[in-house]
Amino acid sequence: MSSFWRGLVIQWRVVGALIIREIYTRFGRESLGFAWIVAEPLVFAIPVLFVWRAVRDPNEHGISLMPFLWSGYLPLLLFRHLGGRILLFIRANVPLLYHQRVTIFDIFLARALLEIFSNLTALVVSFAVFYTIGAVDVPRDLPMFYLGYFYMIWWSVAVALVIGALCERTDWVQQVWMPYSYLYMMFSGFFYLADWLPPSLRNVALYQPYTQAYEMIRGGVFGTTITTYGDPAYTTFALAILTLFGLWLMRDSRKYVVIE
């Protein structure tokens, strides 16, 4: 076996061990522990969506509200939970760094994978719930929906890389994260379609990769009944740059970790 493959095998084993450990430390060892991973985002999503359904006009802007909110809220949860879990993750895991085989990147990967898995399960389960009661339909353009969601995952991971690495250097990253992740709700595309914006504002909004991803997700859900502006080429380019920046910061962040 070449050393590259050996390295990869070791890394997967370490990431696997970290995921199991993370489940134990976060949710306890009882059988409910694992169920919580699935239930946690649902506990957020389902009540919120039902309340909105009760208080808002079900056909704002000529599209039905529930699919719009469902396809907006689940990606929002992923972004906020992944970011929240990654804040100070290095400091919180200092005991792990005693083991030379465990790298910062492994710890990051384990947390991110767990969060993504948990979110995707919530996506499926919440869809099943709302589909059963007739509140949402199967997305009209499934490949487009998957593509948009893929970009949403990528965006959330890239941002987590950047803030996870930066918060070891300065404390204000934490202070900024709270208002940012909250305001993100307003400007991300969770509440709007680019089509509803005046053209000048729309051009600015579409520089945001997450707005692009939202456009693709909405295009997937509603198909050709609405106009969307998703551009996979631009989104890939923007996210690739952000990811490289995040990886570079992360690689360097080990230097800033002070142990006891």
């Binding site: 450990r21 200092v94 085989r101 142990i259």
Partner: peptide
Amino acid sequence: LAGGFHGSLTGNDNMRFIARVYN
């Protein structure tokens, strides 16, 4: 005298984790 384990996990779980990491 310190370090390398997770305080909220049991000795057995810490052992399990380290056994997995070092195969």
